[in-house]
Design a protein around this nucleic acid. Sequence first.
DNA 1: CTGTTAGCGCATTCAA
DNA 2: TTGAATGCGCTAACAG
Lengths: 345, 345
Amino acid sequence: MRKKRVSITDIAKELQVTPSTVSRALNGSKKVSEKKRKEILELAKKLGYRPNPSAKNLVNRETNTIGLIIPEFTHHFYSRMLSGIESITSNQGYQLIICTSNEKQKKEIKACETFLDARVDGILATVCKKNEKFGHLQEILDSGTPLVLMDRLCEEVDASYVVSNDFEGAFNAVNYLIESGCELILHISGPKNLSTSFNRMMGYKEALKKHEIEFNPEWIIQNDEEDMTQRIKSCLQKYAIQGVFAYSDYLAYEVYQIAKELNLSVPDDLSIIGFADEPIASYLSPQLTTVNQQPYEMGAAAARFLLNQINQPGTPLETKGLKTKLIVRESTKKNAPDINPPINS
Amino acid sequence: MRKKRVSITDIAKELQVTPSTVSRALNGSKKVSEKKRKEILELAKKLGYRPNPSAKNLVNRETNTIGLIIPEFTHHFYSRMLSGIESITSNQGYQLIICTSNEKQKKEIKACETFLDARVDGILATVCKKNEKFGHLQEILDSGTPLVLMDRLCEEVDASYVVSNDFEGAFNAVNYLIESGCELILHISGPKNLSTSFNRMMGYKEALKKHEIEFNPEWIIQNDEEDMTQRIKSCLQKYAIQGVFAYSDYLAYEVYQIAKELNLSVPDDLSIIGFADEPIASYLSPQLTTVNQQPYEMGAAAARFLLNQINQPGTPLETKGLKTKLIVRESTKKNAPDINPPINS
DNA sequence: CTGTTAGCGCATTCAA
DNA sequence: TTGAATGCGCTAACAG
């Protein structure tokens, strides 16, 4: 029982003019007499006329919609990214269609198809962890649909990118640990094959290098190894580890628990730094020192990139690395002077 | 430079038939010879034919899209709700268009207009805190667009609802406090005019009543009063408050901090219960006892209601109250026997 | 300035 | 079973 909406022809009939004239008046074309324009606009308003986007899309070949793929909603990081995106797109009159991949490539591929079928004007995505094939992303590119990827790099795909400067963030974090007196530092690294994992690990290594601390492969424990917890425990006991730099705040929390078990006090016996500055970081006891990534800005910047590409076809691809910021709280000892030094490279 | 997509006529030409036939074949109509159907389907696949939704919408008057309005992305509660919604809608081939209100009625109104303009097939919404006018929601109803509201009730709007059983949740929480030995219990209540605030407060009162504890108006402090923190402090000091039931986990955390300041140990000196079971609840020290609301199920149920209304116009409105569950953690003393008793009414 | 004509891609009615 | 014709609501090219 949907109510019939008034169309351009309805108002044309009532005013004894042609639909064309009405269309022109409504679209602000100059080629309409002031008098008629006024009449038309008034009647349109009175009748509650609203253009039918499907009809428009059909002739204009644009849908004013943007497709967004994210791994999941429930990480605060993605929520903030989403907010950033929405703040830009809603402002520009674009609809946001959202699909989640749940880190499953199958769902990601399906989402891409859905978006292509829907003729979205552009696509924003954070690819999922286990991406081994990139045909679906290549298809987007081939179709001529603008694509901007966020957070995770993807060498194989020639798109625009907005990511965090993971290397810098990790470097500064580990550097801070060292300068505050830690020497032996454990790194809990992230999922394999993820650019973010790789770059944060590299930042860790580079910081060690800067301070001429010999790197020991045993000090890196992967989060997706089965017995991660056990390995961390062993490592903490075997070496006199003084600091831990974790890939995420959640992993940092695991270290909190291990420390508790081992009767290590944080930060006196063990300094811990996380990554992402999720809300939990400031609710933990002691509050977690972590690396802020500006997810809101990430989303906003990506949306801007995308809208540029949509509105000005041919705009060259862009890549943006967002600055990170070390947020010093209570899980680290406090004797480092400068917390966000530039990387000397 | 968008690549042209193949249309129904493209494949008609190539096969020397009319678009009608192709349309029929593609839509599984019986009135096509098996041979032609096979030919058509094969060529369609080969050419990568994908129907144009705008064209379909134009003739069918449905868009296969659902509009969703939520206050914000960044509360875990809404993220989970979103996941629940998405799990249902994506399964049924519906697109989800999302707008956030940021708790501003102005944005909510705009979102409704946007959705109506977009001819969405249905709308899901959690209304914002300060809703004084309901014309925009009434307009949705008047247009014949199915509407399901979530989490917050809205007497003025005659739609379907899926909400938590806030009363029951609050009642059980406070009842638990009492049965574990607390007698003087403070309630930090939520934003004015919100059904959830009202019902949780009523649950609080009812539990006191059940145990014949005299109710003192000073024991209810509103979260949107300016000097909330100060008032809580005064109250804790003036009376020998033994338990606090807070409208949300975040408010409960504020009480943690106040308790710390006042040198009150949780739960020995003061038991605290929150509401919502946000992730922070389990990361706090001590871990927070709280009321779980099943936001995922809330979203899923609302989506199901909506799809029912869309697919079977005339379906009567439904209202569902989701069970809550008291999650006992470390912020409450442990001597209550039955944590989720039925309300005796 | 305004009307006429045509077409976007598809589904559907009516004939054949 | 298939084709021809029509229209969904709108824009745009072309005449006048």
